[in-house]
C-alpha cells in the first residue's frame, strides 16, 4: 500500500442519529456505492482524509522513481533499459494522475509537495530502502509493485470518483510493471550465472519484509480505520490485503526457486492461507519517522530538483506573460 496510517480526524464513528441531514445523505450515497464527485457535499473530515491519502499515494509514486532511477543509467541491456525507463515514466505519470485527483478536492499540488519536502508529509516506507544490485529492479517490480497492485485493485472501487478513476487508469497501466520485474528475476534464475542467482536471492532477502510492511500495521479497532472503511475510502483491512499478497506471491517465489527470509512461512491447510512470521514493526515506525536508510537522500533529491528548478518554472511564467501581452498589443 502506498498510503500508510492515514489520519481521519475521527475519534469514533458517528451513529446515523448523530449525523446532520447532509452527513446522513452523504453516508447513504456512499453506502449505496454512488461515487462522490468534486461538487457534491462532503464532510470536511472526508475531504481532508482523502487529501492526505491521495497526496501520500502521489508522493510515493514520485519518490518511488528514485530507487529505480538509481539503476536506469546502469541497466544491463537495451531492452531492460527501455523497460525500466517506461516504468519509471509511468510512475511520474501516476503521481501526476493522483495529484490531479487530489486537486479536485481544492488542495494545491505545490503546497502538498512543499509539505513533503519539509518532512511533514508521509510517503510509503518502502522507498526509503536502497536498491543495491540489479536484481533489486526485478524485486521492486515483482514485490513492491505487486503489493501496490493488490491494494490499488481494491481502491478502484473507492468512494471518491476522481480517485477511483485515477486508480482504474493506473491499474491498467501498471499491469506490465509486476511482470517486467518478475521476468528479470526469472531470466536470471533460469539462465544466469551463480553470481546472478545470488543477486536475486539477496534482493529478495532485503526487500521481502519491507514489502510486507507496505500494507501498514495490523488493523486495530482504531477510529481511523473504521472511519475510512465507513467512508469506503478504504475497502479492505491491511491484514486482509497483506494475506492476499502473501498467498499469491509465495507460489511465484517457489517457482523462481528462491526462498523468503521467514522461517515461519508455511502453508496452513486449515485456514487455506500461508502463515508467516511477525513483522518487525519497530523498524516500520523507525522508517516512517525518518530513520530509514535513505529517507534523507530521497527527500533531499526531490527538494533539490524542485528548488533548483525554480528559475526554470519562473522563466516559463514570465515568457507566457510576455507572449500574452504581445498578442493583446497586436
Amino acid at each position: 500500500m502506498y498510503a500508510q496510517l492515514v489520519e481521519t480526524g475521527a475519534k469514533r464513528l458517528k451513529t446515523k442519529e448523530e449525523m446532520s441531514p447532509e452527513e446522513r445523505d452523504f453516508q447513504e450515497k456512499v453506502d449505496a456505492e454512488t461515487k462522490i464527485e468534486p461538487k457534491n457535499w462532503m464532510p470536511e473530515g472526508y475531504r481532508k482524509t482523502l487529501i492526505r491519502q491521495i497526496s501520500q499515494h502521489a508522493h510515493s509514486e514520485v519518490v518511488g522513481m528514485l530507487p529505480e532511477g538509481n539503476w536506469v543509467t546502469r541497466a544491463p541491456t537495451l531492452k531492460r533499459k527501455l523497460q525500466l525507463m517506461a516504468k519509471i515514466q509511468d510512475e511520474a505519470g501516476h503521481g501526476l494522475y493522483l495529484y490531479s485527483a487530489m486537486e479536485t478536492l481544492g488542495a494545491d499540488r505545490d503546497e502538498e509537495i512543499e509539505k513533503l519536502h519539509q518532512g511533514k508529509a508521509k510517503y510509503s516506507s518502502i522507498f526509503n530502502y536502497p536498491t543495491l544490485n540489479w536484481a533489486d529492479m526485478g524485486a521492486v517490480g515483482w514485490l513492491v509493485d505487486g503489493a501496490a497492485i493488490v491494494n490499488q485493485v481494491v481502491l478502484q472501487r473507492t468512494s471518491y470518483g476522481p480517485y477511483s478513476r485515477a486508480m482504474i487508469r493506473i491499474c491498467k497501466e501498471e499491469s506490465f510493471h509486476q511482470r517486467q520485474g518478475y521476468q528479470i528475476l526469472l531470466d536470471m534464475m533460469r539462465e544466469g550465472t551463480e553470481e546472478q542467482k545470488a543477486m536475486v536471492q539477496d534482493a529478495i532477502n532485503r526487500l521481502w519484509w519491507p514489502a510486507l510492511m507496505m500494507f501498514g500495521p495490523h488493523d486495530d479497532e482504531s477510529p481511523n480505520s473504521q472511519q475510512s472503511m465507513a467512508w469506503k475510502i478504504k475497502r479492505k483491512s491491511n491484514d486482509e490485503l497483506r494475506q492476499m499478497f502473501i498467498d499469491q506471491t509465495v507460489p511465484q517465489l517457489e517457482f523462481l526457486g528462491c526462498t523468503a527470509p521467514d522461517p515461519d512461512l508455511k502453508w496452513n491447510e486449515e485456514t487455506g492461507h500461508y502463515d508467516f512470521g511477525e513483522i518487525n514493526w519497530q523498524e516500520f515506525y523507525d522508517v516512517l519517522k525518518g530513520n530509514g536508510p535513505c529517507n534523507r537522500e530521497r527527500i533531499k533529491t526531490r527538494k533539490n530538483a524542485i528548488d533548483e528548478g525554480a528559475w526554470v518554472r519562473e522563466a516559463a511564467v514570465a515568457y507566457a506573460e510576455k507572449q500574452k501581452q504581445r498578442a493583446q498589443a497586436a
Partner: peptide, 8 residues
Amino acid sequence: VGSVHAAD
C-alpha cells in the same frame, strides 16, 4: 481525463 500544470 484529468488535469496538468503549465505556464501556457
